[in-house]
């Protein structure tokens, strides 16, 4: 080594590319912003419908803070307004949120070396939106050791926004008269339509959607929205069977 002091020299161009804790965190925050824009009306509407459905003010804030799963929170409101018992709502929540297990499973190879003090909060903050941006960051081929900070930035920002929008709906949303008669529940329906469309790229997914939709109509009169669970399970079964007939034995 003729110039040992050059050993640690990095050209400025490469310096710019080196990820730091701070750059990962702020990039996570930035990248989730488009998805947060979609979640804002969703959160405000949840907050403004909650008390009319039977939740208390504190209960609404607590649900957003502790459950933090938009679709299941909306369904809980619908069931609550229809007088459904709490164990039935919890069971429905389980079926509706089961999709998060798919997200967690997909992220396992990337987070397996982190300690539990990372895994617990990152799992708690795992949502459809956070998963959508974080998986893209993990799949990028750079060996940044701080990708968990990107995850944290995206997930934490999503969480804070959800709490803020719930509060906004509870306060400002409550002051707007007859908000519930405007049919704002349609915002949830239309958000879900937007979330389902990207799945419709393969035949088994079409089978899932057609069967789940048809069974949901046929079983609609079942008490406590049991039809929702029956229809979801029928749709999952239809997808697996179609996949099996087209591709052969699962697991190969």
């Amino acid at each position: 080594m003729k110039y040992p002091y050059l050993k640690n020299y990095q050209p400025a161009k490469d310096m710019a590319k080196i990820a730091t804790i701070k750059s990962e965190f702020t990039n996570g925050v930035k990248d989730i912003i488009p998805l947060i824009i979609g979640a804002i009306p969703f959160g405000i509407i949840f907050g403004s419908l909650a008390m009319g459905s039977g939740l208390s003010f504190i209960g609404t804030l607590a649900m957003s803070a502790l459950v933090f799963a938009g679709a299941s929170q909306f369904i809980a409101l619908t069931l609550l307004a229809a007088g459904t018992s709490w164990p039935m709502i919890v069971l429905t929540t389980f079926v509706v949120n089961l999709r998060h297990m798919l997200y967690a499973t997909t992220l396992v190879p990337h987070i397996k070396n982190l300690g539990q003090r990372w895994k617990i909060p990152l799992a708690f903050w795992l949502t459809d939106e956070a998963f959508a941006v974080v998986i893209i960051r993990y799949q990028q081929q750079d060996d940044s050791p701080y990708k968990q900070w990107y995850f944290l930035g995206a997930a934490l920002f999503m969480y804070l926004n959800w709490q803020f929008c719930t509060l906004l709906g509870l306060t400002v949303g409550q002051m707007i008269p007859n908000m519930t008669t405007w049919g704002l529940d349609f915002a949830m329906v239309v958000t879900f339509i937007g979330m389902v469309m990207p799945y419709l790229t393969e035949k088994p997914m079409w089978a899932t959607v057609v069967v789940a939709g048809s069974v949901a109509l046929l079983t609609f009169s079942l008490p406590h929205k049991l039809g929702l669970i029956v229809a979801a399970l029928a749709g999952i079964g239809a997808g697996i069977l179609t996949d099996y007939f087209l591709e052969g034995v699962p697991g190969k």
Binding site: A71, I75, V95, V96, L98, R99, M101, L102, T105, V108, D128, D185, V189, F192, I193, M195, V196, Y199, L200, P204, M205, T208, V209, A212, G213, S214, V215, A216, L217, F220, G227, L228, A231, A232, L233, A234, G235, I236, G239, I240, D243, P250, G251
Partner: peptide, 24 residues
């Protein structure tokens, strides 16, 4: 994680969401 289960899980989000959308 059993591959069969991982494959089945892929159908959960569209199944649940569609079962909510269609009757609504």
């Amino acid at each position: 994680f059993p591959k069969v289960l991982a494959r089945a899980l892929r159908y959960v989000p569209p199944a649940v969401l569609t079962a909510i959308i269609v009757p609504a």
